[in-house]
Amino acid sequence: MMLTRRHALAASALLPVTVQAQGSGVPGWPARPIRMLVGFPPGGLPDIYARMLADRLGPVLGQPVVVENRIGGGGTLANEQTARADDAHTFLSTSISMTAGAALRAGRLNYDVLRDFAPISAISVVANGIFVHPSVPVNTIAELIALAKAQPGRLNCGSPGNGTSGHVTQEYFKLRAGIEMVHVPFRGSAPLVVDFLGGQVGVVIDNVPLYLPHVREGRIKLLAVTTPQRWPFTPDVPTLAETVLPGFDVRAWFGFVAPARTPEPVLEALNRLTQAMLRDPVIGERIRAAGAEPAPMSRAEYAAFLREDMARWTEVVRLSGATAD
Score class of each variant (00 low, 15 high):
D86T: 07
V184M: 13
V184K: 15
I179T: 12
P42K: 09
P213V: 10
A127Q: 09
A83P: 06
T76A: 08
Q151D: 14
E68C: 04
I96E: 04
N207V: 14
G74M: 04
V184W: 10
A260E: 15
D325I: 10
V257P: 01
P185A: 11
A106Q: 09
M297Q: 11
V250W: 14
P209W: 03
V19M: 02
V193T: 12
L222E: 04
A11G: 12
L319F: 14
V66Y: 03
V136G: 09
R318Y: 11
P59Y: 02
I48P: 00
R251P: 06
V113S: 00
H214T: 13
S124Q: 07
Y211K: 13
A54K: 03
L273T: 07
R56L: 07
D87P: 04
S165F: 10
A102S: 15
T82C: 09
V257D: 00
T76H: 06
P296Q: 11
G163T: 14
L109V: 08
T234K: 05
V125R: 12
Q170V: 09
Y302P: 02
G23Y: 00
P16F: 00
P152R: 12
A269I: 01
A252S: 14
P137H: 11
T18E: 06
E143M: 03
S95Y: 03
I220Y: 09
L61K: 02
G62R: 07
R84T: 05
Q275S: 05
T164E: 14
R216F: 13
Q151S: 15
V132A: 08
R219K: 14
V266F: 04
T76R: 06
A295N: 11
R35W: 08
Y211D: 11
A148T: 13
A276G: 15
H7K: 08
T239L: 04
F233C: 07
E171L: 14
